[in-house]
Structure formats: structure tokens, C-alpha cells
Amino acid sequence: MVELAGTIKVISKLLRDFLVAEEYAYREGFLQGVDQKVKLMAILLLIVLAVSTQNIFFLLLLFLFSLTMVLLSKVSLRMYLPRFGFIPIFALIIVLPWIFLMPGQPALTFIGLNVTKPGIMYVITFTLRVTACVSCVSLLLFTTRVSDLLHTLKSLKIPSPLVDMFGLVYRYLFTFLSELERMLLGRECRVVSDQGLLKNWRDGGNVVGNFLSRTFYRSENVYKAMRARGYDGSFKTYPRNDKIGKKSIVFMALVGIMVGIWLVTRL
């Protein structure tokens, strides 16, 4: 039991830490001061650029650009990198076989298989592209409050039920995770011996069942608390920055330069 519980706890903690990136959204950094719409559109543009290039230099540059923005936004790289690092690593593992599968000129031979040059190029570009994209998206998540994001999405005419659904799921997620952790903590305090595997799995089933009924009960109460404060099915939020200020203009200019470089690499 202890092991299973331990695993769930680690996952839940990771998720929660990821979600809590929100704390950074309140710092008085560079991107936090950029208008939400400008930021959203610019970052989407950067992602489009990343997806539509084969140029390793550009992808590297884009990644460095995003790291610079992170630093300017008063988020430390030590906090930033581990949060999304697992995604590019995962991507690398998935595309790695292509170093053999891609037809082309062999670069070297490895246990009887040919590693091709196009294969290597493909794997590097793919991983770099994923890294750059994920980094740009994280940039957005780290410097924007979720409620601002919802507000912006709505003002961009994304269908409101969709946005509200996202808002609801996002809020419930916290409740679920905290409930899960609390329950496991409660168990841990009482479980003393390390039981056999069978008992372990049976307990696992109990935990899941118990968890579901508890979260159901909790979510009902959370819903009550929402209604108590006037929630009527659609989240309303206060927008934060209404004016397009200096920071927004500087950011647009920087993104403009990136677009310029992208164009040059296309020539």
C-alpha cells in the first residue's frame, strides 16, 4: 500500500506544483505587465513559427528567447525548467527510433543498424521544436493568471461554455488533488506494516473507491461555495491590464524581430 500511495502522492504533488505556477503570475516582471491579448497572440505566433521551420538555429534561438523572457519575468530557471522538462525528454524517447528508420545516407553503424544523417537531423529538429513550443506555452502559463487567460479567451470570442468548462475543471482539479493527498496522509498515519502485494492491490481498490466518493462529496460542497458567492454557470473575472503599455510594445517589437529572423532563415 505504502508504495502505491507513495506513487500517487508524488504524481499529485507534481501536478499541483505545476498548477501553482500561478504564484509567479503576480510578480512584477516583464511579461506579467504585457497586455493579455498581446501576449496570447504573440506566443501563438511564436509557436506557429516554431512549427513551420526546419532550421535548428532558429529553434535554438527561440528556446533561448523564451528563457530570456522567463528571467525578465522574475521567474528563476531552477523553478521553470523542471516543470516542463519532462515533456521534451518524453518527445525525444518517442522519436529516437527514427534515427534508424529514416532512409538516407548512413552516418554510423550501431549494433548492425544504420544510423542515417537525415534520421539524426529529424530527431534533433523534432525535439528542439517540441522544447521551444513547450517553453513558449509555459512562458504564457507562468506569467498569466488562469482567470486572466479565461477572460482573454472569452474576449477573443472563443465559445464561452468551452472556456467555463476549462475554468471549472481547473478549479476542481485543486480540490481533487488536495483531497487525494489528505486521504493518503490519513492512511499513512495508520498503516504500520508493509503488507503483501495482494493486500496492497485490494487496498488500492478501496482507496480509489473512497477517493471517488469523497471527491464527489467535496465537489458538491465546492459548488455550493461557488453559488454562495454568485456563480451562475459562467465565470466572471476582473481583467487586469486594460491598456497596451510600454511593456506590450517592447514585447511586440521583440517578437517582431523573431519573425524577421524566421523570414531570413526561410530565404
Binding site: R145, R171, R218, V222, A225, A228
Partner: peptide, 29 residues
Amino acid sequence: VGIMLQNPDDVLFNPTVREDLEFGPAQLQ
């Protein structure tokens, strides 16, 4: 009529305390 439920974990469902404080006023515009 404002009501505060017994379990604060139910009341505080937003990512930050500030957003919890502003949730009600924002809903009621």
C-alpha cells in the same frame, strides 16, 4: 445574504487567496 460554509477547503477553490477574495465581487459584477 453572504454565507460562509464550515469547511474552508470548500470555500477556497481558487488558485490564490486573492482570487478567492475577488471571486464573489467579480461574479456579482
